[in-house]
Amino acid sequence: MAILLIGEVTNGQLGLDATAKAVTAAAKLGEVHVLCAGASARGAAEQAAQIQGVAKVLVAEDPALGHRLAEPTAALIVSLASGYSHVVAPATTDAKNVLPRVAALLDVMVISDVSGIQDADTFERPIYAGNAIQTVTSSDAIKVATIRTAGFDAAPLGNAAPIEAAPGATDPGLSQWIEDRTAHSGRPELTSAPVVVSGGRGIGSKEGFEIVEALADKLGAAVGASRAAVDAGYAPNDWQVGQTGKVVAPNLYVALGISGAIQHLAGMKDSKFIVAINKDAEAPIFQVADFGLVADLFTAVPELTEKL
């Protein structure tokens, strides 16, 4: 049977990177059908159809699906699920909201944050903030899983899969969208950026984050933050990297003024290269850094930005 993959659709736009990485994972399991659901999803469906490995795209357009509210979206997915062996999605906040609801409605377990696929029933996932990797075998009739996109390469474009309309959704009318307060940035998206520059408590103030942003812009990087920096109000919450924030695995991760608590490492220790600058030589971040520098951030970071 085929695999139903829930495309990441936000305000009619496809989250191409997350969806394409999930396609790579899902393609190991069988033929991939992508569902694009939203108030408007046609454009997203057309983009999803270009991802190599996608056999078919289903598009469901309904005002009730407009803001990925869990109840109508889960109802739609459940109505389609019986024809599939697996229902998967990239492990974004949207999918983490909806897929456990789908799984419970199907009376199956959800397998969260899959980082490796051994066969159709056997999956690897990190537990304890990434300090252990668990291999689990599911005996459920339909496997419902979210994919840790940092663990898979994005499938390339260059496909033209057919697009079909999916049956309409039934909105249980339990919830209602009010507003989005989105942080606008011209920088690359954190979870898909090849380079990430993050700041921690050591940055000291919101203004201090300018040195982090200047280095990020020099490197064409996304900006991240530790929980301490977010809690202190230096950076917005959606910049948080870690167990409870975003999980990234860029080619280069630059940690500035970040001590390297277990919960932060959970979100970045699969990065290819890790660089740390911290004035505390004993900071645990240096145990995972490929390149380290013990220095005062406020002189070293501007100097680094200038010399790169």
Binding site: V108, M109, I111, T122, P126, I127, G130, N131, A132, I133, Q134, T135, V136, T137, S138, S139, D140, K269, I274, V275, I277, F286, V288, A289, D290, F291, G292, L293, V294, A295, A300, E303, L304, K307, L308
Partner: peptide, 28 residues
Amino acid sequence: TPRLRVVKTTEPASRKAGVMAKSVDELV
């Protein structure tokens, strides 16, 4: 009764020890 049988639990791959730079120039 669990629906997911745990086959095994392993340590994540450990990272190779890194190197420390003495100056920004050396880091660059």
